[in-house]
Nucleic acid binder design. Sequence first.
DNA 1: TTCGTTGTCAACCAAGTGGTTGATAAATGA
DNA 2: TCATTTATCAACCACTTGGTTGACAACGAA
Lengths: 117, 117
Amino acid sequence: MDTDDGILDLAFMALADPVRRRIIARLSRGPATVNELAEPFEITKQAVSKHIQVLEQAQLVTRTREAQRRPVHLNPARLEALTSWIDQYRLVREAQFRSLDAVLRSQAAAGGPRPKE
Amino acid sequence: MDTDDGILDLAFMALADPVRRRIIARLSRGPATVNELAEPFEITKQAVSKHIQVLEQAQLVTRTREAQRRPVHLNPARLEALTSWIDQYRLVREAQFRSLDAVLRSQAAAGGPRPKE
DNA sequence: TTCGTTGTCAACCAAGTGGTTGATAAATGA
DNA sequence: TCATTTATCAACCACTTGGTTGACAACGAA
């Protein structure tokens, strides 16, 4: 339970690419098809299709079916899992900073023992 | 200002690797040297040193100097930037879900217009 | 049926990644 | 001075990644 490799791995990997992050940004405003997603980029729809597969495997997006189209939808729950992972460690560290700071200030206030060297 | 490529790119890229995430997890409990960080893994210290460089370039960690040692410290502020990016899009999407849900429920309550097909 | 749209599959390529080994630098302590 | 510890640099290798082109499948419209 230390690193939770697996799905978390796929998710961070997926977000490491700037194109995929732009896709996420676009999808936050609503579902879109592969061709719609490909349009703002100078890459082929095949390349975008691959990106979607990466995001889908990481469960960051889902797909539905409507006629020939296969709209891509954002999955906010999975994004939330990422922020949870990050905050888990960030908050621990920040708490330690605060308590260390409190110790140092209380020592200073007491004219107390200073850290050796 | 759409993707904020650059430092954000480096940071997500850095977290995409499970070894580097374990390093982050370890550093959340306090600073450590390269050798200390390498110990739990079955990889050489050279490999760990490279990982540290990646994390340092992403500004997720910083380094200090004490005697021959060069302890690595976590940088919580940079972690916070990542959660901000993610939440930015997650929250937008979730808000849209909620308002769509509200619309649908108010329509149902009014026996009002139903979505075509 | 035929046609256009939408999307995926397969093969390929250049560039990048994570890992290795070996040599070397830098600071400390004997 | 010399040895030890700590960490980095350099060269190299296997594998992955993001991109391409071309063919093709699935569906709806004419």
